Every structure is written in structure tokens, then in C-alpha cells.
Computed example of a mutant assay.
Amino acid sequence: MPSRTSTIAPLEGVDRSLFQTPATCQWIRDANHLVIVGPTGTGNSWLVCALGNTACRDRFSVFQASIPPVRRFRASA
């Protein structure tokens, strides 16, 4: 399957490879998890959706949750 790349607008002070590396989905193949945190309104949800979309296109399952649902999920486990 051909690899896909994303066009990401440059962010001041942010290393572009931090965004390009997860877009390859290699972190999933390596059985790692990805947690994205940051202040409200900085594009966290957009980034999660973009990475999740890429993962789904590569036939991986995706789970996305905000902190309150994650706490409830862990409490019931």
C-alpha cells in the first residue's frame, strides 16, 4: 500500500518531524500508544482526527477519547 503524507502548516517553534513521524503509523506497528495533550483550541482534536483517519486507511482500529471518558474507562477495568 503506498504511503501517505500530510500537508501540515508550519507552527512556530514546533519541530515538523513531530507530526510527520506519527502520520506513518509506525508507532502502531511497534505496538505503542499515542497521547496528545495541549491547551484547548490548539488543534489537538484536529490532529487526533487526522492521525486516526490515516490509521483507519491503513486498516488499523482507532479509539479516541477525551480525559473524562478515559478516567471512566480505566475505573471500570
Rank of each mutant, 00 (worst) to 15 (best):
A55M: 06
R71L: 15
A31H: 07
T21N: 03
R16C: 08
R16G: 03
G52F: 13
V35H: 12
S61K: 09
W27A: 07
L18Q: 03
S76P: 07
C25V: 00
V14D: 09
F19S: 12
A77H: 15
R4W: 02
C56K: 13
R4G: 02
S3Q: 06
R59M: 10
S45E: 04
I36G: 13
S45H: 08
L34S: 13
S61M: 12
R29Q: 01
T54H: 07
S61T: 06
R4K: 10
V62P: 15
P10T: 03
S17R: 07
P69W: 00
A65C: 13
R16L: 05
I28T: 01
T21L: 07
I36K: 13
A75V: 10
P10M: 01
V62Q: 14
I8H: 13
S45F: 10
R59P: 01
A31Q: 09
T54N: 09
T54A: 15
S61V: 04
A23P: 06
L11Q: 03
E12H: 09
L51Y: 15
N53T: 07
A50L: 14
S6F: 12
G38Q: 06
Q20P: 00
T24A: 00
P2S: 10
R59C: 05
F60M: 01
N32E: 01
V14T: 07
G13S: 12
A23C: 04
A31K: 07
W46G: 10
F19K: 12
